[in-house]
Design a protein around this nucleic acid. Structure first.
Lengths: 215, 215
DNA sequence: CAGCACACGTTACTAGCGGTAACTTCGACC
DNA sequence: GGTCGAAGTTACCGCTAGTAACGTGTGCTG
């Protein structure tokens, strides 16, 4: 670690450096989960903390930059599934499956995205409830809402309803996926078809169980 | 803060003290949100940190004790809504509305329940993804699954499907509620009926929007 | 070439966190 | 009276996020 470490050089180093740092941070987060500390990230990048702070402001900034990258990637694949030519139910199934495959393949990333530190001295006096939930969820909800609103005929007030549905469906997908990832109670395909059945109203049409109190 | 502060006394002080501490912690969490520190809680209770640790082991222990209390209370009211005599759709609407009313009335508590510190040196080596989600969500999901499984006829494999639905529905409720609480885009009743429509399969039956790419 | 400016990097620090060790003090019981 | 144990304290550890102050190399400009 002598002072003669960087060969310096290119003037466009700024953006480059930023991406290098992000990739180092990525590695650490992938390895250590959400407990990744700024010190650890700096060490992985071969530098020290203040540089991180110069580039990203604070931890929330770094995390957000990381989250945006991953969220973008996930969103892109989800949009592809949502846009593929198929009947509506098939599209929904494919989208759910894409999401589940993603969180299954890289659970650490998923976990990180859902738990953005949350500290961030926001919440100062007046605790703005609401924005506590992971940005990923909000973004996915809004994106899905947009797709629904522009493609499905929901009558008057449809935009508002589409947003309700967007956030609701995303939440369903998230919670079920989280539970499934933890307990692995069934195959991915079974989860997908179960959720799609739910969305297709099977709860409303299924009969009461004989002998029970009814529902 | 002289040493002659507590009048001591009763031998059954242990349980009493524990409840006093929990109530103090409750007050602090209600005031400071999830950033409530052990120091602050101890101060509010009029004592110092080590006592808290003697009673609850660590922060996670205290938080869990707090969470159990609130979760129990919420669960009870939800169960009441779920058991009230009415047709199925009405029960679902009432349950959703009960949940939303609860988080609307005490958003700080809600926020605390959804963010159980998460630190807890679990996640050691092997980051057990999955259990990161708030215990409240898991518990609600399992409870709902139980209700569904014992009342609705879902055919073979129904128990597994019920769990999928339980967690899915709870997730939907949570995410939509979180979003709604943050943006307040509509009245509570509108959100409830929108979500119920979703659960009753309106997404499957709604027509495509004329002129769009179809969905 | 001198010198200025600036980005890049460092060491060394603060304030606060969760958690603990060691000591004191009080009340009960034999 | 003397001892035992719970309740409570102060003072600390190791860690975190974040910052201030101090080099050091490079390119531009007089």
């Amino acid at each position: 670690m002598e002072t003669t470490q960087q060969q310096a050089g290119q003037p466009a180093t700024a953006e480059r450096r930023r991406r290098e740092l992000l990739e180092a941070a990525d590695r650490v987060v992938l390895r250590d989960g959400p407990k990744a500390s700024m010190n650890a990230i700096a060490a992985e990048a071969g530098i020290t903390k203040p540089i991180l702070y110069r580039h990203f402001g604070d931890k929330a900034g770094l995390y957000q930059a990381l989250a945006v990258r991953h969220t973008d990637a996930l969103l892109e694949s989800l949009r592809a599934a949502l846009d593929a030519p198929a009947e509506r139910r098939r599209r929904v199934e494919n989208t759910l499956d894409t999401y589940l495959a993603a969180i299954e393949a890289r659970p650490q990333v998923y976990r990180f995205l859902m738990h953005p530190a949350e500290d961030s001295h926001a919440a100062e006096r007046g605790f703005d409830v609401g924005l506590h939930s992971a940005p990923l969820l909000r973004r996915l909800g809004e994106e899905l809402a947009k797709v629904i609103a522009e493609r499905v005929d929901l009558g008057p007030g449809g935009d508002e309803l589409a947003r309700v549905w967007g956030h609701g469906i995303v939440g369903m997908m998230h919670a079920a996926g989280d539970w499934w990832l933890g307990e692995r109670p069934c195959a991915r395909a079974a989860l997908v078809s179960g959720l799609t059945d739910l969305l297709w109203g099977r709860l409303g049409t299924a009969g009461n169980l004989a002998g029970g109190p009814g529902f």
